[in-house]
Design a protein around this nucleic acid. Structure first.
Lengths: 124, 124
DNA sequence: TAAACATATGAACAATCATTCATATGAACA
DNA sequence: TGTTCATATGAATGATTGTTCATATGTTTA
């Protein structure tokens, strides 16, 4: 990624039409800064993987340990563990150790709303 | 990806604790089928890129042609065009030709809600 | 019809990423 | 303390993906 919004600096418009100043102003007002857009795309990247989505759907119901997640989703303990690390780093899940097991749970309910909105769109 | 949920078939539980039938049942009820999860992750993948997010934020304000998008975002016409194709294939944007230019616009307002939910989560 | 402009697209390349494998850490128990 | 179970993690690998470059398609105008 090289640059962000370009409204202040000189630029060559399309030959047959112009971008008007007011329009540029309007676009600029609604556009979050580079950092927020980056954070936002990072967040959505997390949801952009089937395995992570499945983990989250399981956690919608209740907290589950790594071992059970692996069996439920029919995947390697290692694969699950790697993804749980990603989910934890993004603060989407919390973990709690109980003896040998580590139990993971949803961090908050924003996750539900985001995924719910996505599902609504899918249904068309 | 090898397999999906695993609740019917025989499986080895963790040695020190068991997954109970009722819990499995509950998880199964809330879990969408493999295809919906795949569609859902594909949808979120679209939002998981800064360039595409920026394009969408611009389109939140008004319809814009490829040329103007490229200048606004300070990117190649080709890069923008490729991403617009992705957005169009996912039915997130519509296009309309006007002479030499092609104008893109938001397909529906679900996009707004999904992104709005994401932003809420970011703010912490 | 030729030239110029706007957009689309295929191939190539670099970067990112999910999974696997091997192994390390941590906890319980004999 | 040694063994076993549960989880974490680093390196390697194959697959996916965003951008660039070159070029094709489509539209207008001289």
């Amino acid at each position: 990624m090289s640059g962000g919004l370009n409204t202040q600096t000189e630029m060559e418009y399309c030959d047959t039409h112009e971008i008007h100043r007011e329009r540029l102003q309007k676009v600029n007002e609604g556009m979050p800064d580079e950092e927020e857009i980056s954070d936002l795309s990072d967040l959505f990247k997390i949801f952009g993987d089937s395995t992570r989505l499945k983990i989250l759907f399981v956690l919608f119901e209740e907290e589950v340990c790594v071992c059970d997640l692996a069996e439920l989703l029919n995947m390697t303990q290692s694969a699950i563990s790697h993804q749980l690390k990603v989910l934890k780093q993004s603060k989407l899940v919390n973990s709690r150790r109980d003896g040998k097991s580590v139990f993971y749970s949803l961090a908050d309910d924003h996750v539900r709303s985001i995924i719910a909105q996505g599902r609504e769109h899918i249904e068309e």
